[in-house]
Simulated assay, not measured.
Amino acid sequence: MTIELSFCKMVFFENYVISTINEGEVVSQEKSNLQTQVLMDHFKDRPFVYITHRINSYSVDPTIYFETSKFSALAGFVVVSKEKPGIKNAIYEKAFLNKPFEIFEDLEDAILWADNLCNMKKKLGY
């Protein structure tokens, strides 16, 4: 299933969502709240991983992660980027999120990590 908001596209899978933010966007708390509502409606209480596929250039207000950390179904967060500025930004953002947070250059590696994390949480009775 795919959902498009004015600033992003989200593609949903069993254990994760892949989000692609549009070029030039600034991800604010308001935009993050919109995404969170869509994620809550889809995943309910099932653990999932949010994968942001950073193929476009955009900005994120890192303080949004304080609220994102409170989302109990969010098992982990992944940034996929091949660009040095994107990786550098992700390292900085990681300090603001109180969830497992990984950075990959390859989307397939991110998906494997997401599936493994969610399957482990399910086995533990999340």
Rank of each mutant, 00 (worst) to 15 (best):
A75R: 09
A73F: 06
N89K: 14
K70P: 13
F66Y: 14
F66W: 12
Y65E: 09
F66G: 05
S81D: 02
E67N: 11
I87N: 01
K94T: 00
K84M: 07
A73Y: 10
I91P: 02
G86M: 12
F71N: 13
K88G: 01
E67V: 05
Y65K: 08
A95S: 15
K88Y: 08
I64E: 02
A75N: 04
F71R: 15
K82R: 14
E67K: 11
S81R: 06
N89E: 15
F66N: 07
E93C: 04
A75I: 02
K84D: 00
V79D: 10
S69H: 08
N89T: 11
K88W: 10
F66H: 13
K82C: 02
F77Y: 15
G86D: 04
N89D: 15
T63C: 02
V79R: 14
P85M: 11
I87Q: 06
V80G: 11
V80W: 05
F66S: 13
T68R: 09
I91C: 07
E93A: 07
F66A: 09
T68D: 06
G86E: 05
Y65W: 09
S72A: 12
G86C: 09
K88L: 08
I91V: 14
V80L: 13
A90E: 06
K88M: 12
E67D: 09
G76L: 01
A73Q: 14
Y92T: 15
T63P: 00
A90C: 05
I64D: 04
K70S: 14
A73L: 10
F71V: 15
G86W: 07
S81N: 01
T63Q: 03
A73M: 09
Y65F: 15
F66P: 04
F71A: 09
E83V: 10
K84I: 07
K88E: 06
E93Q: 11
V79W: 05
A95Q: 12
K82I: 03
T68I: 07
I64R: 00
Y65M: 13
K94F: 00
T68H: 02
N89W: 10
S81K: 04
S72Y: 14
K88R: 11
F77S: 06
S81M: 01
A95F: 07
E67Q: 10
P85Y: 13
V78D: 04
S81C: 01
T68F: 08
Y92K: 15
F77V: 07
A90I: 01
S72F: 14
K94R: 07
G76N: 00
A73G: 08
E83L: 11
K88S: 08
F77H: 12
S72K: 15
N89R: 14
V80C: 13
T68N: 08
K94S: 07
S69R: 08
E67P: 01
G86H: 10
E93K: 01
K94L: 01
T63W: 01
E67H: 06
A73T: 07
V78R: 07
P85H: 08
P85E: 09
N89I: 12
I91G: 05
N89A: 15
A73W: 06
S81P: 00
K84W: 07
F66L: 12
I64P: 03
A95M: 12
S72M: 12
P85K: 09
